[in-house]
Amino acid sequence: MIKIPVEGIATDAAHSTKNKITEFQGIDLRTGKRIFYQNLGNKTVNIGEFLGVVEAAKYIIENDYSPRIIYTDSITAIAWFQNKKTASKKKCKELQKAEIFLKTLAWDVDTIEVRHWNNKEWGETPADFGNK
């Protein structure tokens, strides 16, 4: 019996080389509703995945959201979030702001759990853009 998560926030990003658009979104697993979305312009999928997780953390803190759990299928985003620092070579104001947010509110951010969404067992995350 595969137990797919039903509570928390699922995040995902997509990058279109054709349209030069990187976007991310977050879905409340309990309601299935999109709680945030952003078009970043032409970045990378890793940047989008990371910023999606950071946006979910902001949402949890600002809205006293419970449970304090975020799901992403990006190992890179999880590592960058836990390190509170990216390994991106791209100059990007959004990344700078995200790192500052994570470090400044570390006492609160560290109470949020970021878990890996297991695509193999559970299928695509509910936040997936469906354009593969």
Rank of each mutant, 00 (worst) to 15 (best):
I2R: 13
K3P: 00
G8Q: 14
G8L: 08
A10R: 13
D12W: 07
A13C: 06
A14V: 07
H15Q: 03
H15G: 00
S16W: 03
T17P: 04
K18G: 01
N19C: 00
I21C: 01
I21Y: 00
I21V: 13
T22S: 08
T22M: 04
E23P: 00
G26C: 09
G26I: 08
I27Y: 15
I27P: 07
I27T: 12
D28R: 14
D28M: 13
L29V: 14
K33C: 13
R34C: 10
Y37R: 07
Q38S: 05
Q38A: 03
N39M: 01
L40D: 03
G41E: 01
K43A: 12
K43E: 08
N46M: 02
I47W: 03
G48K: 02
E49K: 06
F50L: 11
L51P: 04
V53Y: 07
V53F: 09
V53T: 12
V54C: 07
A56S: 12
K58N: 11
I60F: 09
I61C: 06
E62R: 10
E62A: 05
Y65L: 12
Y65H: 15
P67R: 13
I69L: 12
I70G: 06
Y71E: 14
D73W: 01
S74E: 09
I75K: 13
T76M: 03
A79S: 10
A79P: 00
A79T: 11
W80G: 00
F81L: 07
N83S: 03
T86F: 00
K90Y: 05
K91F: 02
C92G: 01
E94A: 14
L95I: 14
Q96W: 08
K97M: 09
K97N: 11
E99D: 03
F101I: 04
A106L: 05
W107D: 08
V109L: 07
D110E: 14
I112A: 10
E113Y: 09
W117V: 10
N118K: 14
K120Q: 10
K120Y: 05
W122F: 14
G123R: 05
E124H: 10
E124A: 14
T125M: 06
A127P: 09
A127E: 13
A127C: 12
D128H: 11
F129W: 10
N131Q: 11
K132R: 11
K132L: 06
